[in-house]
Amino acid sequence: MRPPSPSIPEKEFLFNALNQSLRLDGRAPLDLRSPTLTFGPDLGWVECAYGKTRVLAQVDATMVKPTPERPFEGMITIHSEISPMASSEYELGRPSDEEVTMTRMLDKVLRRSDTIEKESLCIVSGQRVWHIRLTIHCLSDEGNMLDCACLAGIVALRHFRRPEVEVIGEEVIIHDPSERAPIPLAIHHFPFCFTFAFFPDATTPPILDPVHLEQRLSAGLVSIALNAQREICVLQKLGGVPLAPDELLKLVNIAVIKAKEIDEMVEQRLKEDWAGRLVEFR
């Protein structure tokens, strides 16, 4: 069963606070919760947290036969699931609207935008290619799972290393990481997603990175996926709140600034983690 709707006092308290540019967790309207990244023992295992919202991303690679129409390209699939462990709103084995929306958005941001160079995944044309599978597990939903899942997904892809492969005649040899250092994926760009919530009252300002209560009381959401180079990959609008073009441009400019900040943070965390793993491959 879905939890009861927010009470009238909760709604009034939230809207009064937002009209004074205050939020329940002390942030300003356009402040982002500081994302944290935790790397697992395996390459391509990353847990991302936005406050109490937590998402686990895992990447694995298997050798498969390519499709006849794309013999030179590897395959990329993205699977996401939201279990009842994340929130009592979700039911086991029954995809919710949020899960379907998130999966489609992740597919657009991380696969259709050509994040990964698919031709680099080819081993033997028409015979063997790498199949990269990204799995997203939502562990806790305290609002804005989409942005958290997108960050976890792109960091997991950057963190992952596939084994080095050697082709001798018709034989394909997969080298163990202890023999030859594994190879990172060829990634074109690093998109990040930023979600803004809008409210029915025109005097209430839009907010970035809404928590669960803010998201439930919002009248519409705008999610912008872009990279630090100001290249927009996907722009998604959910809800009936009309937006003027100049308002949308303001949101894009805010998202660009946040993307640069997160890109620097991710780069630093990846360097720190990789420095600790170099001993394994010496």
Rank of each mutant, 00 (worst) to 15 (best):
N19I: 15
A275N: 08
E179Q: 11
E247I: 02
L235W: 04
D42R: 14
M145D: 04
L278H: 13
A181W: 09
I262K: 10
L217Q: 05
L134I: 03
T38Y: 11
R70K: 11
L226F: 05
K118H: 05
V165L: 01
S21V: 13
E91Q: 14
G143T: 03
S96A: 00
S87N: 06
R94I: 05
S218L: 05
P4K: 01
T77D: 07
P4E: 06
V64R: 12
W274Q: 12
L213S: 09
I174K: 13
D273H: 08
I168F: 10
Q229L: 12
L217F: 05
I257S: 13
Q20S: 10
V234W: 03
S178C: 12
G169K: 08
C150N: 09
L43Q: 08
V165G: 00
L37D: 13
P200H: 14
C193A: 14
N19L: 15
I78G: 06
I132D: 02
Q236V: 14
K52V: 11
T195K: 05
S140M: 01
E264C: 15
L32Y: 12
M1L: 06
T195A: 10
T203V: 09
S83Y: 08
R104H: 01
S140P: 01
A61L: 05
S80E: 07
R161Q: 05
G143L: 00
P41I: 14
R33A: 14
L32T: 13
S140G: 02
F72K: 01
A181R: 12
G44S: 06
E267K: 12
S88V: 09
R94G: 01
V124G: 06
L121E: 06
T36V: 05
L249I: 02
